[in-house]
């Protein structure tokens, strides 16, 4: 697969649009360091991703990249709060309950902090996912099809929320989707073709 060069500034928002089969998810996984690059280079926060060893990369990903999946995934057995604490811990950061509560509050799910994640509504789960992506003050937030299951109104709200939160944390936002409805939000757009 071939991808064009992409450059996103701090606080920059980039939309990667493509129909299924155009390698959207592969690109996202490459950007997240979940798949090895065959050719080309990825640089995040002045760090060439290729030069990192396997466990360095794991930690780098935890610290610098926040990912919001299409479908919310959590550690089922522990509370929302503990899920976010684990995200901090695994990234090698000290657990900061104050920051976790702050983020949950900003996203309007503070009252669910001590519940098990799968007890929450889908919308709430997505908000917790966004909070988790932000918890380590990442340089980049990658969002994979965050709106595909939502109606127009909610899709709009989620995009605005992502942009707003990324800006508050001074992180670049890269959104991968086939959802043409959200085109209008983004100035920087890359369209993938098969």
């Amino acid at each position: 697969m071939q991808f064009p060069d992409i450059h996103v500034q701090d606080k920059g928002h980039c939309l990667i649009l493509g129909k299924s089969g155009t390698g959207k998810t592969t690109l996202l996984h490459l950007l997240a360091g979940l798949l090895p690059l065959q050719t080309g280079e990825i640089k995040i926060d002045d760090q060439w991703v290729k030069s990192l060893g396997a466990s360095q990369l794991d930690r780098f990903r935890g610290k610098k990249i926040g990912i919001v999946f299409q479908k919310s995934i959590f550690i089922e057995a522990i509370s929302v709060m503990e899920n976010l604490a684990w995200a901090q811990h695994l990234a090698g950061n000290p657990v900061d309950h104050g920051r976790i509560l702050l983020l949950l509050k900003r996203l309007g799910v503070e009252h669910q902090a001590h519940r098990l994640p799968y007890r929450l509504s889908i919308g709430e789960q997505q908000r917790v996912s966004i909070a988790r992506a932000l918890v380590n003050k990442p340089s980049v937030i990658l969002a994979d099809e965050p709106t595909s299951a939502l109606d127009d109104q909610n899709a709009d709200a989620v995009i605005r929320l992502l942009e707003e939160q990324a800006d508050l944390e001074s992180a670049a936002l890269i959104l991968v989707t086939h959802d043409a409805r959200i085109k209008s939000h983004f100035e920087q757009q890359i369209i993938l073709a098969a």
């Binding site: 997240a32 396997a54 794991d58 610290k63």
Partner: peptide, 14 residues
């Protein structure tokens, strides 16, 4: 728990 384990990896677990 496959997805959960993948999540742990994404979050930085070796």
């Amino acid at each position: 728990r496959r997805q959960e384990l993948a999540l742990l990896r994404v979050l930085g677990a070796t």
